[in-house]
Simulated assay, not measured.
Amino acid sequence: MVKVSVIVPIYKVERFITKCVDSLMSQTLKDVEFIFVDDASPDRSIELLNKCIRKYPNRVDSIKIVSHEKNKGLPAARNTGLALATGEYIFHCDSDDFVDSDMLETLYDTAQKEKADIVWCDWYLTFGHNERYMKQPCYKTSLDALKGMLGGTMKFTVWNKFVKRDLYIHNNIFFPAGYDMGEDMTMMMLFSCAKKVKYIPKAFYHYVKLNTGSFTQTYSERHVVELDYNVHRISDYLHERFGNTLNKEIAFLKLAVKYPLLISANSKKYLLWKTWFPEANRYIKINHYVSSRCRFLQRCAAKGFFVVIRIHYILFHKVVYGLIYR
């Protein structure tokens, strides 16, 4: 058993793959296996991957490259990597991002010292010319962290979480193949099974976001179906484990899932917000996991004051993110 298995799905990332792989090959932790999953990428991503890894002959024996015959999507690629992994811990890295060289060693040493099932850390939101430091909350227990993710104050992203492989195996946890949007909610299932968790107040992961409008522009009908599936998947799983004790927090998750619809000037998205999970709207006022600004926008949406939502989008997201962070 190696210390860490790093799983890297690859699809249409020829612009980013070299920087990603360089950052992984430069890790100070040596006992690592790297599993690259080619999800039938139609561009030069795999060619560039092979070219890059030839620069690191000391890592050759620790690299696995596996290919899907046809594109299956991100969750399926993660599952393929999990099936091949032999590491004590699992780390997922998206192939258009990059990491600091001491990331794996720091996460692994912390997990060993604290005997933690899961370790998470801060991260960077990386734009074309600058970065924004994204601080995560500190929770002492896995249940508190789970509530934080449901509430929206803690990200349930896979790429700043360091997870013991046994959690996947012993609890039969895998990613929802075919339902890409919201697939990282799977982290909540893992946290619900973890006995001990640990937070590191330091950022190592650089989440690259060059198109600040891409999420709202691609929020398609299919994405809504996928998100709806994943919300119900998590809701059912948590009800089975905890009964009704997390009903309030699950309502917070529903609010968080549809909140991006308000980061838009599109009236069709506003209509979808009104019709999607309307039963959760009565929990807006009491969700103190999120900012007062977020609650204010949701309350405006619930009352139909979409002019306010549109003005907020133009002033905040177009000016702040469109001009300052780019």
Score class of each variant (00 low, 15 high):
residue 300 C to I: 01
residue 32 V to P: 07
residue 200 I to S: 04
residue 317 H to K: 13
residue 145 A to H: 10
residue 83 A to H: 02
residue 278 P to W: 00
residue 280 A to Y: 07
residue 244 N to R: 15
residue 92 H to D: 01
residue 185 M to N: 15
residue 60 V to Y: 02
residue 214 S to T: 12
residue 194 A to T: 04
residue 21 V to L: 02
residue 57 P to R: 03
residue 4 V to L: 00
residue 111 A to W: 03
residue 306 F to V: 12
residue 77 A to C: 01
residue 8 V to K: 07
residue 258 K to I: 03
residue 96 D to T: 02
residue 9 P to K: 00
residue 216 T to E: 11
residue 13 V to H: 05
residue 190 L to Q: 06
residue 149 M to V: 02
residue 248 K to N: 11
residue 118 I to W: 09
residue 87 G to M: 02
residue 123 W to A: 12
residue 19 K to T: 15
residue 40 A to S: 09
residue 17 I to F: 02
residue 187 M to Q: 14
residue 275 T to R: 13
residue 238 L to C: 05
residue 10 I to K: 04
residue 30 K to C: 10
residue 4 V to F: 00
residue 97 D to V: 05
residue 167 L to F: 06
residue 4 V to S: 01
residue 290 V to I: 15
residue 175 F to C: 02
residue 325 Y to I: 12
residue 39 D to P: 01
residue 76 A to T: 02
residue 79 N to M: 05
residue 149 M to I: 01
residue 150 L to M: 10
residue 311 I to N: 11
residue 35 I to W: 03
residue 321 Y to V: 08
residue 147 K to T: 03
residue 149 M to A: 01
residue 77 A to L: 05
residue 248 K to Y: 08
residue 83 A to F: 00
residue 73 G to D: 01
residue 243 G to Q: 08
residue 117 D to G: 13
residue 263 I to D: 08
residue 106 T to I: 04
residue 56 Y to L: 08
residue 136 Q to Y: 02
residue 186 T to A: 07
residue 316 F to W: 11
residue 12 K to P: 06
residue 19 K to A: 14
residue 13 V to N: 12
residue 281 N to P: 06
residue 270 Y to L: 08
residue 24 L to N: 05
residue 203 A to H: 08
residue 191 F to M: 06
residue 179 Y to S: 14
residue 166 D to K: 13
residue 6 V to M: 04
residue 245 T to A: 14
residue 133 Y to K: 13
residue 68 H to T: 05
residue 213 G to N: 11
residue 47 E to Q: 07
residue 302 A to Q: 12
residue 176 P to C: 13
residue 129 H to Y: 13
residue 106 T to G: 04
residue 196 K to N: 11
residue 146 L to V: 09
residue 188 M to P: 10
residue 233 R to P: 08
residue 144 D to I: 02
residue 277 F to G: 13
residue 265 A to G: 13
residue 104 L to G: 01
residue 257 V to Q: 09
residue 47 E to M: 01
residue 273 W to M: 06
residue 184 D to C: 10
residue 37 V to G: 00
residue 7 I to C: 07
residue 122 D to H: 12
residue 179 Y to H: 15
residue 281 N to T: 09
residue 237 Y to G: 06
residue 267 S to K: 15
residue 49 L to H: 03
residue 75 P to V: 02
residue 202 K to S: 06
residue 252 F to C: 10
residue 150 L to E: 11
residue 65 I to E: 04
residue 301 A to I: 04
residue 7 I to R: 07
residue 196 K to L: 00
residue 167 L to K: 06
residue 316 F to P: 08
residue 81 G to L: 05
residue 209 K to I: 08
residue 293 R to L: 09
residue 311 I to S: 12
residue 289 Y to L: 06
residue 173 I to C: 08
residue 314 I to F: 11
residue 61 D to G: 15
residue 120 W to V: 09
residue 303 K to Q: 11
residue 267 S to P: 14
residue 64 K to F: 01
residue 321 Y to N: 15
residue 256 A to S: 14
residue 126 T to D: 14
residue 163 V to R: 08
residue 297 L to T: 06
residue 75 P to W: 02
residue 42 P to L: 03
residue 15 R to C: 09
residue 45 S to W: 00
residue 75 P to G: 07
residue 11 Y to P: 07
